[in-house]
Amino acid sequence: MALEMTTDTESAMDTTISAPPAVSAEGETLKMRGRDVKVFYGDKQALHGVDLDVRKNQVTALIGPSGCGKSTFLRCLNRMNDTIDICRVEGDILLDNDDVYDPRIDVVELRARVGMVFQKPNPFPKSIFENVAYGPRIHGLAQSKADLEEIVASSLQRAGLFEEVKDRLDEPGTGLSGGQQQRLCIARAIAVSPEVILMDEPCSALDPIATAKVEELIDELRQNYTIVIVTHSMQQAARVSQRTAFFHLGTLVEEGLTNDIFTNPKDQRTQDYITGRFG
């Protein structure tokens, strides 16, 4: 089944790749577009038709109270919801011009292009080197051992971790501190050279200093990657993101420039949330 799929995909992609990228009203390239996204867990509907664009080389923050569907939406973007048996997704999500839920789209390729960093740092129980080398290895990105070493070192540098771990690359990744582990996971994600990085509350398990470092890193990564971040903390959203989307009860209430959302929300619910009336 998988074999037939890839051959079809090729032709499908060939036609789409040449199409011009979608552009927003302001002239910014739209990396990903969600249109009327609905998600069901069994009989329960978790998302009620969300339309949301993700702009290229910007950080988009998804905020909202617990259970509002922001993580669910995030996991739709690289089809991590596929791992949950009872989960069903409707609507369109486009990466450039490809519908990621098109049956002809290959999920492995999608996830290589749309990487993910999780809430709790989850380094593999392997050495630091092997953790970062994992992605390049499975995708066959390195031609030689030297290539691989270069990619690993470079990824760790880009993740701002290289200086801290360069002398102990063969020690287990699980032995690092929480903040270092999360940056290791980021290094692991960028080693695959994704186009988009999804971050699901990446700092919620970290202390303030580690959080600051990761936030700094996110800001730096923005130049080369498109980032979508789910966060509980409005301060974090304000600090790292250019655009913010506010979710409530499975719907997208409001989306706009982060500054506008925080200073001048259009919707009463957003107002209530950012002023701390609920959450």
Partner: peptide, 19 residues
């Protein structure tokens, strides 16, 4: 979480299991 981490990097199921 380890399986998710691997899948999130674009590993196939068997790659996740074996590696």
């Amino acid at each position: 979480s380890l399986r998710d981490g691997s899948a999130g990097l674009g590993a196939t199921k068997s790659e996740t299991i074996r590696r």
